[in-house]
Design a protein around this nucleic acid. Structure first.
Length: 538
DNA sequence: ATAGGGTTAG
């Protein structure tokens, strides 16, 4: 029936309402006119309210309906099943059963979805029993929801049994098991299902690639990727992410180029990964090229990830002014965007500016996280801002209730050490609750050596050896100290200890772009002594 | 009027 001719405009408005405020408006009007007292009108209001993002309003209307029917219950269960509190879907379902309202296939799919989302197998089994009792078990969609439930809860044998008993299956039935295997890292079993499936869709292939990527099997992922008949943007993104996670940043750029040759339009997710690779490689020109692409194609950056990646890329490629420009023009900034700007300024030695940005962040009402404080403290340390660093450390603990981690302590020890406040630094290190803190001790040791406090340095180096006997730094540091005092017997002793324990110094590796070409180089340590350590090994 | 797959990222 053509609603607009037969009913007052308020009713069609009620039906079309999609936002909370529209539902609210409709509600107010229905109350004023008394139309709300018609059960069918109240139900329509509930259907609209159940389609909004919040469930509280829908629930309020729901509780006032005097005679809720199947459709009303379905709407409420569905709303909760998709909400952040899916447990409530089961509560409403139970209430429905107690009220003896007869369920249908829509009731079951929503209730089972609620069970899946809280991983409630026991609840799911109850619903499953009802499904069988009502005789709706042969429905394809209900069956798929059941397979999904059991697979997601790790009941793979049950999931498989349900699937095998279904009178008909489709690709979604198989994907439910495939994706569940992938999500718990059982990639071999996923592969078995993948090979067995009578049909596959794009998602099946994408699941399989992401399964390999998740366990670090990039080559296997690439094999599946190359085999797939049609790729979408997700396929490319998953593969690019795989290379990125395996630190194959060069491969990221190569694959991105192939993607464009294949005429697949990148989305913000692609470009975030590519920019991150550019940042890691120091590949400025490619990064700038991506920025132009973002502008030209007006790529959507609703969550601000792209802005963050651009700030990071420019910072790491040495262009702090451009990073600032991106930051200031960013349409949306979240905590990571701020973090990445603070980190960039810190890296470039602009401690005061980093603090300014941090304060701006607080004024803007953005809640800083533990990364923020690592970046701010590191900025203070690099720039030698002692008073500010102490204040920030205190602010982090007292106001923002963040427990300092090893990295936070490390920054503070660096900062105190820089000013020769060795006693205070040592007290701070001793106050640390965590055990795996050799990095912090190392930092303190460096400070002691810089300030010529050899006795303290020696004591701490010994401590370092106890804490991390498999790490080269304690040995190297201790040898350095002995050598600086001309105690060659002690140097020899440390050297032997290091050798017998099979400890070796790992060379560092860096990359930089020169004239559009990315170069890789290894560091063998900054001091002549480190080189001599390497000679011993040879 | 309503239903089934959490694919990717700073």
């Amino acid at each position: 029936m053509s609603a607009s001719f037969l009913q007052p405009p308020i009713l069609s408005f009620t039906e079309k309402a999609t936002s909370i405020s529209e539902v609210h408006q409709a509600h107010a009007h229905l109350l004023k006119t008394g139309l709300i007292h018609h059960p069918s009108v109240a139900r329509r209001l509930l259907f609209s309210a159940a389609n909004t993002t919040t469930t509280t309003y829908a629930h309020a209307i729901f509780t006032r309906l005097q005679d809720p029917n199947t459709n009303v219950y379905n709407a409420m269960i569905r709303a909760y099943a998709n909400s952040p509190t899916p447990q409530n879907a089961i509560t409403v379902y139970t209430q429905m059963m107690n009220d003896c309202v007869v369920p249908d296939k829509y009731t079951f799919t929503s209730a089972l979805k609620g069970c899946s989302r809280i991983r409630g197998v026991e609840e799911g089994k109850q619903v499953h029993a009802h499904v069988v009792k009502i005789g709706i078990g042969s429905d394809l969609i209900v069956g798929n929801t059941l397979v999904h439930l059991y697979a997601k809860c790790g009941y793979f044998e049950v999931a498989r049994e349900v699937l095998d008993r279904m009178p008909q299956r489709d690709v979604i039935s198989w994907n439910a098991i495939l994706s569940a295997y992938v999500n718990v890292g059982l990639v071999e079993l996923a592969r078995g299902v993948f090979d067995e499936m009578p049909e596959r869709n794009l998602e099946s292939w994408n699941f399989m690639i992401s399964g390999y990527v998740a366990v670090g099997l990039v080559e296997e992922a690439r094999g599946v990727f190359d085999e797939m008949p049609v790729k979408d943007v997700v396929s490319w993104n998953v593969m690019i992410t795989g290379y990125s996670q395996a630190s194959g940043f060069g491969d990221v750029l190569v694959l991105f180029e192939e993607m464009q040759n294949a005429n697949v339009k990148p989305d913000s997710c692609t470009l975030v990964s590519v920019l991150s690779a550019c940042a890691r490689l120091g590949a400025l020109s490619q990064g700038e090229w991506v920025r132009a692409l973002v502008k030209k194609n007006r790529i959507d950056d609703a969550n601000g990830f792209l802005a963050t990646a651009l700030v990071d890329m420019y910072s790491k490629c040495g262009c702090i002014e451009k990073a600032l420009e991106i930051f200031q023009n960013a349409f949306k900034k979240d905590v990571s965007t701020w973090n990445s700007m603070i980190s960039g300024l810190s890296i470039h030695g602009f401690g005061e500016q980093a603090l300014e940005i941090f304060n701006e962040m607080l004024t803007d009402g953005v809640e800083p996280n533990e990364i923020t404080f690592i970046n701010v403290l590191s900025a203070c340390s690099h720039a030698g801002l002692l008073k500010e660093g102490r204040e920030v450390f205190d602010l982090m603990i007292r106001v923002h209730r963040i427990q300092p981690s090893v990295k936070h302590y490390g920054c503070m020890v660096d900062l105190l050490g820089r000013f020769g406040l060795l006693e205070e630094a040592e007290e701070l290190v001793k106050s640390m609750p965590m055990k795996e803190a050799s990095v912090v001790w190392e930092s303190l040791l460096g400070a002691c050596r810089n300030h010529g406090n050899v006795e303290k340095a020696e004591r701490i180096a010994g401590k370092l050896l106890e804490l991390a006997p498999e790490d080269s730094s304690g040995y190297v540091q201790l040898s350095n100290i002995h050598a600086s005092m001309g105690r060659w017997n002690d140097v020899n002793e440390v050297r032997t200890k290091m050798k017998t324990r099979g400890v070796s110094k790992q060379p560092g590796c860096s990359m930089i772009e020169v004239d559009g070409i990315v170069h890789e180089f290894f560091s063998l340590g900054s001091s002549a002594f480190l080189n001599s350590v390497n000679e011993w090994e040879g």
